[in-house]
Structures are given as C-alpha cells and as structure tokens.
Design a protein around this nucleic acid. Structure first.
Lengths: 145, 145
DNA sequence: AAAGAAACGTTAACATGATAACGAATTCGT
DNA sequence: ACGAATTCGTTATCATGTTAACGTTTCTTT
C-alpha cells in the first residue's frame, strides 16, 4: 500500500474509500452491513466514509424496504474513478506476485483465504458470511487494493 | 486480535504497547529506530507509545553515545507484565495454528516472512534490515501478538 | 396490541496509522 | 574548520480502527 496509496491520494481518495468504491463498482447495490463485511470495514468507519463519498457524489445512499437498511450504490462518477485507477491497482498485485513467484503467491492467497474463513466461522459461531470464490482469478475475498 | 485485545485492555495496555513491550523484553536494549523496524511501527506512533510507557515506568528512555539516539529498555515492571500475558498470547497462536493445521500454519508463516523480506528489499533498495531468524520456533519477525 | 428484545446505523471518544514539517545532533565535502 | 546535507526523533494533522452508547426500526413475546 505504501506504493499505491500515493496514487490514490493524487486521485483524491483514501485507501478505505478506494476499497469501498471498488467493492461497490462490482455490484449493483448493497446495504451498508453487507458492504462492511465484504471489505472488512467496521460500521463506524464505513459510516464516515459513506457520508464523505456521498457528499462528493461518488456514492448514493437511500433507505431500503426495511427502513433500517441503508442501500448504497456507486454513482457514474464513482464507477468511472474505479475504472481509471484499476490498472494501477492490478500493477501492485503483479508486483507482489513477482516478488514471491506465481506458485507461492497463489498458495499464499489461498492459505490466507482459508485462515480468514476458518477464523470467521467460530468468531460468529456458525453464521459464516464468507462466500467461496470459485473464480481462480479471485485474489481473496478481501482485496487490499 | 479481536480475541486478545480485550485481555490486553484488562491488563492496561493497548495492542501496540504490547508489541513494544514484547519486543523489548526479548532484548536488553535498543534504540528507537531499531525497535520501530523490528515491529513495523512508524516512528510517530512509537514516539507517542514510548512517551506513555515511559511515564508509566514500563520502559525507560535514555540518550545514547550518539545523542540523536534514544535508547530504550523494558523496566522490571515492563518485563513482568510481558511474563504475565505471554501465556495468553501463545494461546492465540495455537488457535490460529489449529485453525489451519500445523503444516499449513508453518507454511503460511514462512510465506509471509518471505514476502515481507522481499518487499522490504526493494522498498529500501538494498539496505535490507530484516534479519533472518534461524530459530524454528520463531513465528515471523513481526509477531502480531 | 404493548413491552421488551434484536437488528442496523450513527455518533462519540480515544488510540493508532500516515504524511509532512521540524528541531537537534552528526557526518560530509571542501 | 565551516556550512550543507543526513540522520534520528518529535510534533502536527488528518483519516481510520476500536469500543461503547444511542436512536430507529423491526421482530418477539406475552
């Protein structure tokens, strides 16, 4: 992140704002809780970030059918920002991969996924919210960048 | 850490304070810079933490021969605290190990060490400060807890 | 249906992470 | 020897992590 964060800063977003936008740009819409779990952000942090991104018109918040829920969507501008920065993000993953070698890299990502999944299970005692990803291109359910 | 942090809190130390004390109790003395690198803490954070721990008599700061350096040592009380909490820390590592299995656990720790070492190298472009640890019991140069 | 419990977000308060600007001490080049 | 560049640590500032306390809305229980 030491390498990627400066690029994010030039683009006007912080590290966590980036993770939020990235996650949102991959789906249509989510409620805040889903989003928080998807990217491992606590609700207090997410609240602040969404409030900020909302004012800057990068995301859009609205009430759900269940009016406790806050439905969030990335706006056009938000998605455009992600499109613009994604290549720089990919570049960092390739850097990590080349530092370890493809084989070790994939093994590391897999082991980390396994660890996160298993630890999550008995944290919440059963209600595993961590979904499997059969996609071999997936680099883990919690992309750092 | 979600499991260990509450125990630390009851003992009156934060997560990073714990890491500082743990590192110091394993050596005789270090200057602030060495310490920061050893446990991956930025100097601004370390400064605040050492100032705090110093007032609470858990560590002791003094000037080195080179008077730019701050030599730091854990006091008796500091070491006693680590002795008292170490078993609880070990317990967490065993939990992680049992979640992955011994084989995967060791492999994960090794891969992470490798990654950290290699990324560090070309961050600083050559002046690798990351020392090897031949000790098989070592769990990585940056114990989280 | 009404009181209580639970779920979802928000806000508050404090500790930490990150970056930059600074002060003090030391080393270098001339 | 002297001024510039370095090194080490501190301080300032802002964003985030963490925990707890709340306000709303919904679900449960009776």
């Amino acid at each position: 992140m030491d390498r990627f964060r400066p690029k994010l800063k030039r683009a006007g977003v912080t590290e966590q704002q980036w993770r939020v936008l990235r996650a949102l740009s991959e789906t249509d819409e989510m409620d805040a809780g889903e989003l928080a779990q998807a990217i491992c952000l606590r609700m207090p942090s997410l609240s602040r970030i969404l409030a900020d991104l909302n004012e800057r018109r990068l995301v859009q918040k609205q009430l759900g059918a269940d009016r406790r829920l806050r439905i969030v969507r990335a706006t056009r501008q938000g998605r455009a920002l992600v499109e613009r920065l994604s290549p720089l993000s990919e570049q960092q993953y390739r850097r990590i991969e080349s530092a370890l070698g493809t084989k070790h890299y994939q093994r590391l990502m897999k082991d980390l996924d396994t660890l996160i999944a298993r630890l999550s299970v008995d944290e919440t005692e059963g209600s595993s919210t961590v979904q499997e990803h059969a996609d071999p291109a997936a680099r883990g359910q919690n992309p750092a960048l």
